[in-house]
Nucleic acid binder design. Sequence first.
DNA 1: TTATTTTATGAACAATGTTCAGTATTTTTA
DNA 2: TAAAAATACTGAACATTGTTCATAAAATAA
Lengths: 220, 220
Amino acid sequence: MKNKEIQEQRIKGYFLQATKDLLKSEGLQSVNVRNIADRAGYSYATLYNYFKDINDLVFLCVYDFYGECEQHVREHTKRQERGIKRLRASIRAYVDFFVQYPGIFSLFFMENLGSFKDKGRATEIISFSLDKVCEEEWNYCVSKGILQVEQVELIKSQIRHATLGLLMLYINQRVSFPYTELINRLYLQTNAILESCSPGGGRDGGGVSVHNSLISIKVK
Amino acid sequence: MKNKEIQEQRIKGYFLQATKDLLKSEGLQSVNVRNIADRAGYSYATLYNYFKDINDLVFLCVYDFYGECEQHVREHTKRQERGIKRLRASIRAYVDFFVQYPGIFSLFFMENLGSFKDKGRATEIISFSLDKVCEEEWNYCVSKGILQVEQVELIKSQIRHATLGLLMLYINQRVSFPYTELINRLYLQTNAILESCSPGGGRDGGGVSVHNSLISIKVK
DNA sequence: TTATTTTATGAACAATGTTCAGTATTTTTA
DNA sequence: TAAAAATACTGAACATTGTTCATAAAATAA
């Protein structure tokens, strides 16, 4: 009884890994039952013994990919000074992750979820992925009084939507500027959002001091 | 020589109209050569005498749809008071247009443009569509001193990206809130962006007075 | 070992994009 | 007007992809 379970999970894992590899290396347009099964070392028909349909399989990748995204952000920001600087670096690392794997962006934000079993959990992870990968830093900024707790939810959603909108235009090639320009615009808009909420009441009088740090930004 | 041209354009028009009708009524997933040709009254093979491929045909719709979007916004905002109020109403009307026709949103922002002939012009129209439908109002606000000319480009891009990000999440069902909540969040974020740029130097001291008008907002 | 259950598979079907050779229609020419 | 030529239209056919199903292969139980 238990062995059966283990073996089934193992084979599901082969298909899952094949799908993830394919999506990352060839993009979403190469993800189809025959290619997946080839990589997994099975016939395409076997896939249907383990997954309801290809949609089910593909959206299962979301959980793993979110984890990879989280780790990518952590590794690329750990040497940054805590606070606004690391927050900004986290947002950039998040963007970089999807620029590196446009197929994952399509999967996360554009692909029709169809009848995926737990749509709810997946969409929750997806839509708050940026918030989540920045969570520690949001908390840090609030705890240090860099950001005000009443404002932080609005700021989060501003940054979430502005970042995703910009990313969508870039990844789907609705804009033609190069990567460096993407990052410049990302910083500009991130700073504008953070700036608008500097505590203390007066313009430029708060503790965020986004402008100063802006000067030293250099795109990779 | 001239008649041939006219006739060819006429038949292209039948296919184009069929595609537009189909996209608006059934969505992008029903847009295929056989359905289009059925509606146009021709065989699916005939389509290839007039268009390179289906992608070419579908992206030709962008120009017409942009015009419809523009008109939709104009008609739904003409009774609004000029300035920030009409600006906000324009943004909402823009969002409403895509909520009504999600297939057009997919076409504009998500579909792979492939080898579409003038990618350049189409993507320009697409990515600046929100800016364009609000152009008169942006100009009005600047001319009346409601917004400062140096800030307006940054504000435009903030609103553009934040609006598209929110719309993407909503239309692709990555969030589960109802339409009324979408509009609430749209207003909240629009106001936050506009507020951050009130002229005069001090918080709440500028001429935008977004807060006051926020009170009277009622979602349809 | 033999019977039964489980697992894996290719054949086959449906939907869609595309090409092409042949048919129908229109236009040109004699 | 009638034959010839050019043009327009079409279904058959092929490729790709998702899915189902009968059956072969393998594992398990008797």
